[in-house]
Amino acid sequence: MVINIIDDIEKSIRETAKKLLEEKKVDLIIGYTKGSIPLRSGPCFITDASQTGMLVWNQSCDLNLAKYLAKNDDRKIGIISKGCVGRAIVHLIVEKQLNKENITIIGISCEGVLNRAKIMVEIGDKEIIEANIEDNKIIIKGKDFNKTLPLQDYINQLCITCHYKIPPISDIIIGNKKPEKPPKDDFKDLNEIESKSSNDKMEYFKKELNRCIRCYACREACPMCYCSLCFIDQNKPVWFGKTADISDNFIFHMIRAFHVAGRCVSCGACSSVCPMGIDLNFITRKLEKIVKERFDFESGINLEAPPPMGTHKFDDKQEFMIEED
């Protein structure tokens, strides 16, 4: 039963964190804690071993905690890392944004997180007062309704295709140490959008991106968005429009996606945090596929593999070069 495994993991997380703090192996534990509303979680920062009871682990732990690590932070940090958090840490080390020495990766075997936006569409505008996950079902209670949803249908698409349930490198592993991997990622989930005509694709993009209010939650939640000045914030001179008009929104999301191509660790945090429920993964997933096909590269897997956008090989495909030199 999924629920018991998750409970066990949560218990082990608390014990491990407590021990690390007590033995002064770390100064700080970064983990997840319960949000104040159902199906939500938030980050927590624990320095006191007696506080480790607030750590939780469940399918609402959707943030990428690697966002809270910084190169210039000289504290010894233990970080609760599901697969994609571990990937983010690895890739940030590759990009020389983190020093591994100070970081203790507490790897968690993750079975995927919920797609809250999809649940909200299903529930409508009603408030969820209580939600439990039992026997592969999401049991939701509202003021005057009850709803049971099959868990598998509401797991993030990225989690379903994810091959890295545990971090590529861990100092400690909690839960299933050799999780079952899904069959080879064939990017079949992209078939639908790829088979659309250009016009229909555009319509789809517009429909999604039209809702964007430019709060930049996607960017701020993304572990790979660490630029000290984002291209969209350039104002000497202004590079791009900052309004929530569709043309400006389109530019922002497309260029941001391009900028994380070959770097995105498929954590889905950008989609999870979007207050407007925009599925931004539909763009990043396509780029993940292109990078995989062209460069046979997946980000955050290997500390030694140079990132494709940061390297040049003479045999890189360059069919876009029309003229021979």
Binding site: P43, Y68, C215, A217, R219, G241
Partner: peptide, 24 residues
């Protein structure tokens, strides 16, 4: 410490009214 610095609390707040000015 947990804040990621996005604008969702303020943009979706009914009372927040700060603005930027620009030419199009």
């Amino acid at each position: 410490q947990g804040c990621i610095g996005c604008g969702s609390c303020t943009y979706l707040c009914p009372t927040c009214h700060c603005f930027d000015v620009l030419d199009e």
